[in-house]
Amino acid sequence: MVILENIGCAVIKLINSFADIIYFAWKILIRIFNRNTYTSAMRTVLIDQIYFTSVQILPIFLMVSIAFGSLLIGVLFLQLKQLGLTQYFGHVLMGLIVTEFSPFITVLLITLRSGSAINTEIAVMKVNKEMSALEAFRIDVINYLLVPRVINGVISIVLLSTLFSVVLLGSGILFSSLIFGMSIDAYSNVLLNSANFSDIIIALLKSIVFGFFIILIPVRFGLQASHELTSIPIVVSRGMVNVFAAILTIEVLSLIIKLF
């Protein structure tokens, strides 16, 4: 009986948490599409956020994508050559690397760097009573603090994952000529033939959804901090676990959409 009760409790908790996130996402979404949200203060925060999330890490991000991407493409092309699957390299490059791998790696990098930072930042602000300060001056916390962060997540993930794809396709030119002895013309032709417009649109949409949730969830859990300092690590770890669950869920959903 106790086990059943525990299972029931866990399921109810899970459903409540999921419903809470969806309701919160809806609230944020409404604000995103409301013109009044975009005040000068909000725009300043948005620019700061994009600067911290994307521009500041751009050199490191590019280096990581060149190193990681080249390594991956090199290994993949060698494997394809060894298995005699050279004719599929275009499909592997477009279908796997550009539409699946790039958004995924970008999301992981941004979650690790900015997701955790935003989760902590919001929790610390809550503990410091800075949220109450904003409310005392009739500043809407959602409009001023949360919406710019979520929009930043969407913009950053879409743009950075595109950059990642471009870098990967660039190293593809190098490796295709080294491993397959392929010219740039032949390479771009193969890419064009295997590029599927709907796949690219799905990849872009997936990046948008990723960007929305990997910031929204840390923000939501950050807001759950109490006025005690000890609540910060608790909400941060809970937030990060939930972000990774969300990443996995979105990946699975996008796969299902692709199947149909």
Binding site: I50, Y51, V55, L58, L159, T162, L163, I200, L204
Partner: peptide, 21 residues
């Protein structure tokens, strides 16, 4: 300025996406 850097980043990457599409 920070605003210029952010603007440059967004415009450049958006151009890359649009040109590719």
């Amino acid at each position: 300025k920070r605003e210029v850097k952010v603007g440059l980043f967004i415009v450049c990457t958006a151009i890359i996406i649009c040109v590719a599409l």
